[in-house]
Design a protein around this nucleic acid. Sequence first.
DNA 1: CGAACTTTTGACAAGCATCAACACGTGTGG
DNA 2: CCACACGTGTTGATGCTTGTCAAAAGTTCG
Lengths: 250, 250
Amino acid sequence: MLPNSLWPMVHKLSTRCPLGSAEIDALLSLPFRLMNARRNSYFAREGERASHCSVLLSGYAMSHRITGEGARQVLSIHFPGDLLDFLNGKADYATSNSEALSSGQVAVIPRAALVDLALEYPWIAIALWTDAGANASILAEWLLNIGRRDARSRIAHLICEIRTRHRASSAPDGGGPSWMLTQEQLADATGLTSVHVNRTLQGLRSEGLLSRERTPQVLDWQRLCEVADFTPDYLQFSELEKPIALEAVH
Amino acid sequence: MLPNSLWPMVHKLSTRCPLGSAEIDALLSLPFRLMNARRNSYFAREGERASHCSVLLSGYAMSHRITGEGARQVLSIHFPGDLLDFLNGKADYATSNSEALSSGQVAVIPRAALVDLALEYPWIAIALWTDAGANASILAEWLLNIGRRDARSRIAHLICEIRTRHRASSAPDGGGPSWMLTQEQLADATGLTSVHVNRTLQGLRSEGLLSRERTPQVLDWQRLCEVADFTPDYLQFSELEKPIALEAVH
DNA sequence: CGAACTTTTGACAAGCATCAACACGTGTGG
DNA sequence: CCACACGTGTTGATGCTTGTCAAAAGTTCG
């Protein structure tokens, strides 16, 4: 198990650009330290020294930042295979917090080792660059979502994104359940309050879009997508992943 | 003039990671086509085929996206030296619009040429990766700003960011004036309406933070930063640029 | 079986949006 | 050189969306 732990990262990066077996072997032999995380434990804190890169191997995570007044904004949700520190650039200090949403595992890789690898295998560097662009594209969609859509659409949009990414994830259902956010986290991800999220969610349920369970199922995917103004292009899936994401089956 | 047109990009990338003269020469000899742009002209439109990378050489630009309901969200402001397509990842189609905020020039570079260069000079690839991370970090701060700060702080924050980036820009004052947004654009960048931006701006003026001119001057930088909850770390300036950004002189 | 989360509900307040009109400045063409 | 049109900034009246505060009900887990 240990030798192949990094496979989710390889899978992820090879959706960003095609990698040869040399690159894959090199990635898999990267030095790393395994960390088990419980829900709510932190992988990194804003301002902390960041000499490593973390790769999420299983479970879910999020990154967030806090304003001077103490309000929290969730910046991204992470699935298995994701690099957790894509916001840091070359900064020596983490610019956001990253926290586990469920129990799971991360591989902690020395940043220098990854840079060395990128220098030796330029395609890996390109893949990392491309991956950073894809992540930025998701951030941009979140910005559009929060800046210009109302509560109902915002929440529906996030639900659509999470469901789509969950289905396309390297570990279909192996990563965990498809509903991993509390209403408060949903609120912090959409720029709303948890009270308003609760009421809006009830609205979506009574429209028949979501089930009434505690962790709702999507009952009407197509209408939910319409409400959400959701088009998965910004997720920049490769051709292989796309059909899974686009099919309208519930 | 032609041979050195790409200098602003070189300047930018070498703040991302130190480049040797071989890399710099390679970058400067990249093939490109010069384009003059007038205010409000588009460099790229969402969904359009994107086989090139554009570098902003002078003037200002922004990128934005539109919801299905027609609402516009500004995603980023660009200064000379910025790569304009950082959101695209490997996608063949542009995921956002980019539009000139003032008259200016861009260099249009075939994407393939840039990738080839990155393959040949791995440090360039690293610089591009790092640059993408820094851009994502700015997007993340915008998300925090729009998601979790009120109108007054949001607007103040954007003003602080623009002023700081303007001062650190490769062409100090050569790029243009330090106030390049209409109130409507400011609104689309902060997730507000132009009416509310107008009123909030008047509030900031009557507090003595901004001058009453049509394109206001910052009168009290320090208090503006406090109101804005502004800390420039997320801009990920290199050490060279930092002092300019941090000094509290008006 | 109790403690700590999480979800739900209600009453109320506030921030921001909406709509519509008007003022101002700037550039353009007659 | 004046007139006009267009983009931008300003103002007012009004109302809806969302936030705030507080408490209760439900859930999970040790």
